[in-house]
Structure formats: C-alpha cells, structure tokens
C-alpha cells in the first residue's frame, strides 16, 4: 500500500511545572461550548487535571478514544515517590470511570486539538508553559480510516449501550415527531 506523509499534532506535558490552577479545563469547556465561549463547565473539558494536592500530584490528562469495555489495567505505579493508578495516564473514555463523559448526556468527549486554531486553547491559555504544542510528520498508509466526528463517537457509544436496533428505532421515531 502507498505511504503518505501526515502531520501528527501532540501536546508535550511538563507536569512538574503545573501549579494546579485548572485554567486549561475552563478554557477547553468554553471553547467547545455552543455557541463558542457561551458557557463554562470544567466537567465537560477534554483535558482534566488529576489532583492530589498533599501528594504533590497534578497530572494533566487528555480525552482520547471511546471504548465500550474496561481493560485489565489495575496496576499501581510509583514514580518519584508518588503513587498513580495505571488508569491515571489513560486517555480512554471507558465504563470504569466518569472521566471524559458529558455530565448531562453521558456521551464520550474527545480532544480534537481545537482543530482550525493555531494551537490548542489549553496550550495558549496555560501561562505556566506546562503544555507545549508540537507537530511532527509521519508516514502512514494512504487508505487510513477517516477519524470519527464527535457525533459519530457519541452514536457509537449509544449503539454499544442500547444496541443498534433500539437506536435506529429511536432515531426513526424522533424524525417522525419532528416532521409531524
């Protein structure tokens, strides 16, 4: 299969510089509000600072892929004297925790790197340089699957939860009601 070049966007996290202010959560939720900046809700942020203040833990984590089932990860990691659950570093929206789910609908949230902006808003508004935006090029197969949009990720998780048939019925019923 033919290879093409693709730009990978990443955010380097220097957790040692984090002062724990959670400004990144605020700006993320504001940016993704509809209309943009119309509301704030850190519970809807696609970056979350996992915090245990007295244990000196301030760990920014980004929302990643939705997954319908839990993994086996139950390990504990001790790094520099601090104990973390294996889950702490995981980006997944998964049934084992309420992280990265919209608090109203329960639908999964995913970091989109603020597509269309020069850099992600969390990077821009962190004045302590905890987050650094980086781009690098990699080679990938030409026919890679297009990434799912927010709505599709939500639909997929609902299909997992309720079954595709029920979901289709519900959509059909709703469209009938709207037409009527």
């Amino acid at each position: 299969m033919a290879k093409i070049k693709k730009t990978i966007k990443t955010i380097k996290v220097d957790a040692d510089r984090c002062n724990g202010c959670r400004g990144c959560e605020i700006i993320c939720s504001a940016y993704h509000a509809e209309p943009r900046y119309s509301s704030i809700n850190p519970a809807k942020s696609r970056i979350q600072i996992l915090t245990h203040r007295l244990k000196d833990i301030w760990l920014p984590v980004f929302a990643g892929e939705y997954t319908p089932s839990e993994c086996m990860g139950r390990e504990k990691y001790i790094i520099d004297g601090k104990e973390y659950d294996e889950c702490a570093f995981c980006r997944a929206t998964c049934p084992s925790r309420d992280l990265f789910k919209d608090p109203d609908s329960g639908l999964p949230l995913k970091c989109d790197m603020c597509e269309g902006e020069d850099e992600p808003q969390c990077v821009k508004w962190c004045l302590n340089d905890v987050l650094t935006y980086e781009e690098r090029e990699i080679e990938v197969d030409e026919e890679e699957e297009a990434p799912l949009e927010d709505m599709e990720v939500g639909l997929e998780s609902m299909a997992d939860k309720y079954g595709l048939d029920k979901l289709q019925d519900a959509v059909a019923r709703l469209s009938q009601q709207k037409k009527a």
């Binding site: 509000a33 943009r36 900046y37 119309s38 509301s39 704030i40 809700n41 519970a43």
Partner: peptide, 15 residues
C-alpha cells in the same frame, strides 16, 4: 461538586 454550565452573555467579547 458541580457539573453544570455557567453562562456568559457575550463570550467572544469576554474572551
């Protein structure tokens, strides 16, 4: 612990 929205009247102007 709260998980609700707080609303801004004119978000772009505020930002």
């Amino acid at each position: 612990r709260g998980t609700k929205d707080v609303h801004i009247h004119d978000g772009p102007a505020f930002m």
